[in-house]
Amino acid sequence: MADPALPGAATLIRVVAGSTFREAVRSRTFLGLLIIFAVCVGLSRIVGWVSSTDGNIVTTDLVMSLQAIIGVLVAVATGTALVQSEITNKTLYTVISRPIARWQFVVGKYLGLAAGLALGQAAMLAIGLAYLAATGAEVHRWLLLAGLLTLVEVLVMAAVSLCWTALSSPLLAAVLGLATWFCGHAVTSLPELIHHLKGWQLVVAAGLASLVPNLGQFAYRNQAVYQLPLGWADLAQRLGYGALWIALLVTLTVVVFRRKHL
């Protein structure tokens, strides 16, 4: 047979992403977590009833937080399994032996997972907002913006988990992924914690903080519940910040994966 015309990088990445997306959204975990989210959203009304403050505000806050928590858990679980399970199950043998570069495989896998996570987040947001509307809570555009920023947080966490799994075992990667999530939110309060530091202590503290993504950038949900506005420039800056972290983490994963023995 003559040399076939090889598909370009964009085609290969799209093909891998498409297959990963199909595989992800058909998994039972995906459907199961949507059901768990729907059940939790239903139960959130009870908290609203027993709350001393405005029940609708509490329910809205809970629905938006649930979307973030379940989204992050799914991102950590699937991000850690994304490439590592392919190595363990040897499913990548028939893929990597084809004319595809390893970086194209990793990027395609991440984009496919990102698409699956985006669909999941959209479904959760739709369920949550439909429930809020049905129960008389106010549904406004700030909630949609909060949902969008939560999606970025989830995508950053998927990239964090993917990167950790390239450097360690899946279990350790999941633990480190969740630890990164806690640190990423703690970094938001760092200026208040380190304002008394000076000199090298301040440099070290700031340096360490820069090693984890500041996930507080994406936690707009609490403000959104009270309809506190978010400017376009601010939104663009947060989206850009998330995209930069994703690019950095996926690049790190590629560097490690290129050298990995399969």
Binding site: A5, V15, S19, T91, Y93, V95
Partner: peptide, 26 residues
């Protein structure tokens, strides 16, 4: 390449999987 004890993605159909790998092969 046929690996020893081959494993494949569980949630893809035969036609989808073959098309996927064929596309990767050009």
């Amino acid at each position: 390449y046929l690996p020893e004890h081959p494993f494949f993605y569980d949630n893809l159909r035969v036609d989808e999987y073959l098309a996927y790998l064929a596309r990767l092969s050009g």
